[in-house]
Design a protein around this nucleic acid. Structure first.
Lengths: 242, 242
DNA sequence: CGAGTGGTTGATATCTTTCAACCCACGTGG
DNA sequence: CCACGTGGGTTGAAAGATATCAACCACTCG
């Protein structure tokens, strides 16, 4: 028994994959090195060769790349139960950074242990592979979002996505969720300037679609937001599929 | 012996992974359903549930998503030796389209056969997983590209990337490669209007950086293009890593 | 020869950025 | 306890990048 940290991963994986008792046992036996990090700290840096991957237990993390002229792009936001750098298990050098957005509780899993696990439990290997594929599907949608939608739709899209993902792990309901993110960082997600983020946010507020307090978002009219975003949740692959 | 089609995959996989003779034999024994398609044909459509994945043997393919208001975004370009819809092995419903860019020779591999293969040959499973992870890494770079670089760098980036990838499979050298793509489609890759693509292309020509003839691109000054693009090839994970 | 596709051009509109303030809440040190 | 420094948010004016619209051109194909 590892405490609640590994359980975030267990629930995430069982949500969509069919795992048997032995799978679950193996998963729960995985040695975790637990660490707490503050906000805005580097977890795994670009260019390094990690020997472990990192499970988000509490808090939010993000992956980012920086362009030569110093412009940072946030590639993905990560919520509890996710392993943002699972790819480093097979892609040996990091092509981006992994950082905490907020203070985080993290569980580090040695690659050796992961390799052992996927060798012994094919269904877990599949489940983990699948997670990296969903990760990929989200990148595709972000690409579409950033490349082809106007700022207001783009931002709505991000809000709706985060809502659905957080809802799926029980961290959001009634249109509300916590996400302590600055307008600057929002801009880095969306490829927008902080000032423009500010203005688009105002527009969204004025239209009565969202309410933002310090750390929490309230989506006041999810239907209209989804429509504005051109939202189609297929890409999240949340349904048990099959 | 399957003919040269499967060999494109063999060379691709052996390039970076260490596979033993038995791996290669199993790979070569994979039953392939060979089909030729014309340009601009749908290979696998959004929303469908494929039971096979498709190896590109000759020609170019691309994946795309379309926004509600009809704007199409090309998510990735695919060259011989790649399996653009490998993800459908584990993600059962297609969240985007797969289409041919040019006339293509394709080899379809049944998911059942793939599942058998990854069950029997863990090293092949790993190699395939790894391919999907590189796919993902390219999405990340495209996201950065489209979100944070000005049009001219963005386009340069695409050209350099295609050059390096084609070079790696022996389809490019001396700065030149074939890629029969229209300016319209280029725009769909980059999130730009066809007219703007045209203008940026002119700029690139005037600066003496590229020459474009009907179907072929000549990168006249790779160094300068890479600099203009802020290019860093890490994300392609072409080196045998380790 | 005519139609169609892809490429090119110019003028104008729109979106987003840039720059430069200013404000406010908060925390820290004097 | 107040002063001040800082980070994040907000605002206005102006500049810049890209889109839009509307032609026109060049080739290819039937």
């Amino acid at each position: 028994m590892q405490g609640p940290l590994i359980e975030t991963l267990v629930t995430k994986l069982t949500h969509v994959n069919s795992l048997d008792d032995e799978d679950l046992r193996t998963l729960r036996d995985l040695p975790l090195k637990i660490r707490r990090l503050g906000a805005q700290e580097v977890v795994v840096a670009y260019g390094t060769r990690p020997t472990e991957s990192c499970l988000v237990g509490e808090g939010f993390a993000f992956r980012s790349k920086t362009t030569v002229d110093g412009r940072r792009q946030i590639l993905s936001l990560h919520i509890p139960g996710e392993v943002p750098d699972l790819q480093s298990l097979h892609l040996h050098v990091m092509d981006h950074d992994l950082m905490t957005l907020t203070p985080c509780l993290l569980g580090f899993i040695a690659h050796d242990d992961l390799r052992r696990l996927i060798g012994v439990r094919p269904s877990l290997a599949l489940a983990l592979w699948r997670e990296t594929l969903i990760d990929s599907a989200i990148f595709r949608e972000w690409l579409l979002n950033v490349a082809s939608r106007p700022a207001i739709s783009r931002m709505s899209h991000l809000f709706v996505e985060m809502y659905k993902r957080l809802e799926a792990i029980g961290h959001a309901s009634g249109g509300a969720f916590e996400l302590p993110i600055t307008q600057q960082q929002l801009g880095e997600c969306l490829g927008l300037t902080p000032v423009h983020v500010n203005r688009v946010l105002q527009e969204l507020r004025q239209r009565g679609l969202v309410r933002v307090l310090r750390e929490s978002f309230h989506l006041l009219d999810l239907d209209q937001l989804e429509q504005l975003a051109g939202y189609d949740a297929t890409y999240l692959h949340l349904a048990p599929s099959l």
